[in-house]
Amino acid sequence: MIKKAEISDINQLLQITKSCAKDMIDKQIFQWNEFYPSKEVLQKDIVLQQLWKLEIDQNIIGLIVLTEIEDAEYENVKWLTKNHHNLYIHRLAIHPKFQGKGYAQKLMEFAENYAMENNYISIRLDTFSQNKRNQQFYKQQNYTQLGAIYFPKQSEHPFYCFEKIVNV
């Protein structure tokens, strides 16, 4: 079941992102670390009502942020659509114990249905250039890879932007 996260979920959500960060670091993918995503970032997502959780048997196993807020880093990206009523995905995470079972796909399907139901023109996101698995995942979902952006506090390597048009 996918539903909006609540403040009472914060410790479980943080445990998922920390487990994902450790798993990526173990695989030499330095996308997330002990500082990001932080408890404060997740709390802000919850307060803004943009963090959704995936529960299986009343346990949170994944999360996704759906927001209309465009990060400043996206300003110079040559998007497929105009900057008008776009949905942005951030912090898609599935606990490593549950990865490879189609749960990320379920969250992406939820995001796309949410976007279509709410008349968003497109969905935009970014993923780390060193995370080949994520890049392949988004391409399989028919997202178009666009320009690169940088988050200097996270990595010296770029993040690739992707977009999918969902309503014309």
Rank of each mutant, 00 (worst) to 15 (best):
I2P: 00
I2K: 12
E6N: 12
E6I: 07
D9C: 01
N11L: 13
N11Y: 04
L13F: 05
L14A: 04
L14F: 14
I16R: 00
T17A: 02
K18I: 07
S19R: 12
C20D: 06
A21W: 05
K22C: 10
M24P: 05
D26I: 00
K27C: 14
K27V: 13
Q28D: 12
Q28M: 08
F30G: 06
F30R: 10
Q31W: 11
E34S: 13
F35E: 13
F35P: 00
S38W: 00
K39P: 10
E40D: 15
V41K: 07
L42N: 02
L42P: 00
K44V: 03
V47Y: 09
L48R: 09
L48K: 11
Q49C: 02
Q49S: 14
K53I: 03
E55P: 00
E55F: 00
E55D: 08
E55T: 02
I56H: 07
D57N: 15
N59W: 01
G62E: 03
I64T: 05
V65S: 01
T67N: 06
E68K: 12
E68D: 06
E73H: 11
E73K: 10
E73C: 15
Y74T: 04
N76M: 15
V77F: 01
V77A: 08
K78E: 13
K78H: 15
W79I: 00
W79V: 01
T81A: 05
N83Y: 08
H84L: 11
H84Q: 11
H85N: 09
H85L: 09
H90P: 01
A93H: 10
H95V: 01
H95C: 02
H95L: 04
K97L: 11
F98V: 05
Q99V: 04
K101S: 07
K101T: 10
K101Y: 05
Y103M: 08
A104K: 02
A104G: 10
Q105H: 15
K106S: 12
L107F: 13
M108L: 07
E109A: 11
F110P: 03
F110C: 12
E112M: 10
E112Y: 06
N113I: 03
M116T: 12
M116Q: 12
I123Q: 04
I123K: 00
R124V: 02
T127K: 05
F128Y: 13
S129T: 06
N131F: 04
N131R: 06
K132V: 08
R133Q: 13
R133E: 12
Y138T: 02
K139M: 04
Q141H: 10
N142K: 08
Q145P: 04
L146E: 06
L146V: 04
G147I: 00
A148N: 11
A148D: 13
I149H: 07
I149Q: 11
Y150P: 03
Y150C: 13
K153V: 09
K153H: 11
Q154L: 14
E156Q: 15
E156V: 14
H157D: 14
P158S: 10
P158I: 14
F159Q: 00
F159T: 06
Y160E: 02
F162G: 02
F162N: 00
F162V: 01
K164R: 07
V166T: 07
N167Q: 09
